[in-house]
Design a protein around this nucleic acid. Structure first.
Length: 783
DNA sequence: CGTACTAGTCTTTTT
DNA sequence: GACTAGTACG
């Protein structure tokens, strides 16, 4: 039994030993907080006689949870499996699966992801006859999500709206949305938290049960908690007040998602007797990297002052490069990776390429493929939100929970089985008029639907009933295969000769692989738990649930980062957000440009907090690097089909020049590279949101001008001259032979000047005559 | 009822 | 430039 205090520094030891009462650990990046948390857990159990059964550790991602689980198992050993290590969301699901019926839900409720919520919201708006042109669904969803983060119920919101009639539409939508969710026996992500709190407040005996259970609570990444999560933690810890939170206000990057930075800044006010410990020694990075990170973050106001330091020495200088285009930038990064691989003992997995937006991954991917370097992209389009996967999941959901109207509607005509929109809308109104679920309406379709369509509907419900019967008897894998067979899903997919049919089939295969893996995993877990005597093993709320329900639950809560595996020896590409909590010997931060990072939204916002959040993001990015950090920017890049010209990011100016490798001056945009003052997009944005200059805006522009003459000019110049600047001369004319990337070669028949762009008509040798815009088509003249 | 084309949106970040 | 939803037409 190793001593859990060994090899910890003084501050870390204090944190480990402080187990009674509220404790705030301000842990800078790389200061060993996971180590503190795991050792603290071990210390409680071994030295203080705390039962593992009474410990709860909460994280944000499943990846962080399983990492902590692994390390706790390692250090605690016997009994560690009765510690709850869980994300906020899965913890709430577990509780609600058991007690959801106390607040009017069926315990088998389904969880709606963002796509599902969107579909539902579309429905709601249609029913309320709200013009989604004027106020798009996503605005309502966003607003409602934020209300939930702040624990404002639909009733509170209605009350608020009675004083402020601009909120009335949202209030109506909110209410209808919640009712629809409930009717579908479904909860969205935010509901999981909100409804758990509701449960605790309306059933004190349930709360008491969990308070008694979780006498010691730890929360990781506390800076990312929102008001609802704070309340949840407060309720749970209210009885014993042994609440330990770990966080770093400088790494709070989820304000857009409702994270309330005040939770960490005001912890000491909430808990007067709180003990505060700062961990500032960094065990990850070299001093140069830390100096860069420190100098950037020092530009933020209203933070808890911390300065990271390390005993690891200065290390290598930070590399800084400005390239001409995103393409060149990608090439530089890939060449550099190849060079490092050749010269050093680097594995591909030692390298991460980070960027602000997912769209930036493409250029880098292309170059990596050309260079034959294996890589993985984290995020982007989630695997589980691909069409074919969502279809399969919808079948499974319908089999599992017939009340999920959304899922039924998704698959009722997928693959095409001749049930059209007219039947569907008849059934919809029939269901609504009689208070039936959509599926129940299907079963009573004979009452309203004439013969031809009726038989199709009956075939569908019979299919579902049979599959449902089978679900209880066969394995999950067989069930999925059965769905595919009976619906001829793959055959119909391929028959549709969509060019990506192959990729879709591959996705389905991968899905089956995941199903199998899940089944094996859950068998293991069941075996593990046998023989462990646990007074009240929470398996009791899991074990009765079918493997199907558990699978659906797991799938609903996976994040992209969860799937990253260390075993793969691949370069990792991801957003700066996804990178939080990870570390790599080699880190590239690309796209260090004004308008991109910081994004134009943050630059043009009234709220300076937005810029500070971008700066924290920059801090997070820099502190991911252990030894080698490279920052790159491009003078111009294509964004949504438009060429944009960006100045280097202001964050580069905030890093002392002496930290950069010697022979490189700070990059500046050369005069001749400045065809237009700033990005067309920024300029459009400014015009759309600020049509009339008021005094406050004028001062904003002046401020911007001092800092960045680049952006300021864009705001002041008129739109007309800018737009005409965009129209390049064409290098080809009528009668010329041109080449198109998809259609091949052809002859130009006509060129029309259509406003901002040329409309070109081309007769292609293969596909025939096509009309296209020159700006998009990228036609090249051939001889 | 299904298809093919069009228009609009997106891009800031995600449990 | 990619994707999606909506619409018009067969």
């Amino acid at each position: 039994m190793s001593n859990v205090l060994e090899s910890l520094n003084e501050e870390q030891k204090r944190a480990v030993k402080q187990i009674q009462g509220p404790l705030l650990i301000l842990a800078g990046a790389g200061s060993g907080k996971t180590r503190v948390l795991t050792n603290r857990t071990a210390y409680m159990i071994r030295e203080c006689g705390v039962s593992p059964f009474n410990i709860l550790a909460i994280t944000f991602t499943n990846k962080a949870a399983s990492e902590m689980r692994r390390r706790i198992d390692e250090i605690v050993g016997y009994g560690s499996e009765s510690i709850w290590v869980s994300t906020f969301h899965s913890m709430c699901v577990r509780i609600l699966r058991r007690y959801g019926d106390r607040i009017g839900y069926d315990n088998s409720f389904t969880i709606y992801d963002t796509d599902d919520s969107k579909v539902l919201m579309k429905d709601v708006c249609k029913r309320l006859k709200i013009d989604t042109k004027q106020s798009p669904e996503r605005v309502f969803l966003w607003e409602i999500s934020h209300a939930k983060d702040e624990l404002i119920s639909e009733y509170d919101y209605a009350k608020k709206a009675s004083y402020d009639f601009t909120l009335q539409d949202t209030a109506r939508v909110y209410r209808e949305y919640q009712e629809s969710l409930k009717k579908n026996n479904a909860m969205d992500f935010d509901d999981l938290i909100v409804k758990t709190i509701e449960l605790f407040k309306s059933c004190p005996e349930v709360l008491l049960n969990y308070q008694e259970r979780f006498k010691y609570i730890m929360v990781d990444e506390y800076q990312d908690t929102n008001t609802a999560q704070f309340e949840l933690v407060r309720l749970l810890s209210d009885r014993y007040r042994n609440i330990c939170v770990v966080g770093d206000d400088d790494q709070s990057i989820y304000k857009f998602r409702g994270a309330n930075i005040r939770n960490i800044l005001d912890f000491e006010t909430h808990y007067r007797d709180a003990c505060v410990i700062k961990l500032e020694e960094n065990y990850r990075s070299t001093q140069n990297i830390l100096d860069a990170a420190n100098s950037v973050i020092h530009n933020n106001m209203g933070r808890k002052d911390k300065t990271l330091w390390t005993g690891r020495g200065e290390g290598e200088k930070i590399h800084l490069r400005q390239l001409d285009s995103a393409y060149d930038e990608a090439e530089f990064v890939v060449d550099d990776i190849r060079k490092n691989k050749r010269e050093g003992d680097l594995e591909y997995r030692d390298t991460a390429v980070l960027y602000r937006t997912n769209a930036q991954s493409r250029a880098i991917e292309e170059k990596l493929i050309m260079a034959g370097i294996p890589y993985n992209v984290v995020g982007g389009v989630n695997f589980y939100s691909r069409k074919e996967i969502k279809d399969l999941l919808a079948y499974l959901k319908v089999i599992d929970n017939g009340r999920d109207d959304l899922a039924v509607k998704r698959i009722i005509n997928v693959p095409k089985r001749g049930i059209g929109s007219s039947s569907v809308s008849k059934l919809e109104s029939f269901a609504e008029a009689n208070g039936l679920s959509f599926y129940e309406a299907l079963k009573r379709a004979y009452m309203i639907i004439p013969g031809k369509s009726l038989s199709k509907i009956n075939e569908f419900t019979e299919l579902i009933e049979e599959l449902r019967k089978e679900a209880g008897e066969v394995s999950l894998e067989d069930l999925v295969n059965e769905i595919l067979d009976r619906t001829e899903y793959i055959e119909k997919l391929e028959a549709n000769d969509e060019y990506d049919a192959k990729a879709r089939v591959e996705n389905i295969d991968e899905f089956i692989t995941k199903v199998v893996a899940f089944e094996e995993g859950s068998e293991d877990r069941e075996e593990d738990s046998i023989g462990i005597e646990d007074k009240e093993r929470e398996a009791e709320d899991q074990e009765e649930r079918s493997i199907l329900s558990r699978f659906l639950q797991e799938v609903a809560l996976v994040a992209d980062i969860d799937k990253v595996s260390e075993d793969d020896n691949r370069v990792l590409l991801m957003t700066l957000h996804s990178a939080k909590g990870l570390e790599f010997p080699y880190v590239y931060i690309t796209g260090m440009e004004e308008g991109l990072f910081p994004g134009y939204m943050a630059i043009s916002s009234e709220d300076e907090g937005e810029l500070e959040e971008e700066r924290r993001l920059c801090y997070v990015g820099i502190t991911r690097a252990k030894e080698h950090l490279t920052l790159t920017s491009a003078r111009s890049r294509m964004v949504r089909g438009e060429r944009q010209y960006h100045a280097p990011s202001r964050f580069l100016d905030e890093i002392p020049v002496k930290l950069f490798d010697s022979n490189v001056r700070k990059p500046r945009i050369r005069e001749e590279d400045r065809p237009y003052p700033a990005t067309v997009k920024v300029q459009k944005e400014v015009f759309r949101t600020k049509p009339y200059a008021s005094s406050s805006q004028t001062s904003k522009y002046r401020l911007a001008e001092e800092k960045k003459p680049f952006i300021a000019k864009a705001a002041i110049k008129t739109g007309k001259s800018m737009l005409s600047d965009c129209k390049d001369e064409l290098e080809y004319g009528v009668g010329d032979r041109v080449r198109h990337i998809k259609f091949g070669d052809g002859e130009v028949l006509e060129i029309k000047s259509g406003g901002r762009d040329y409309e070109v008509t081309v007769k292609f040798d293969g596909p025939g005559v096509k009309k296209m815009f020159a700006g998009f088509a990228k036609l090249v003249k051939i001889m």
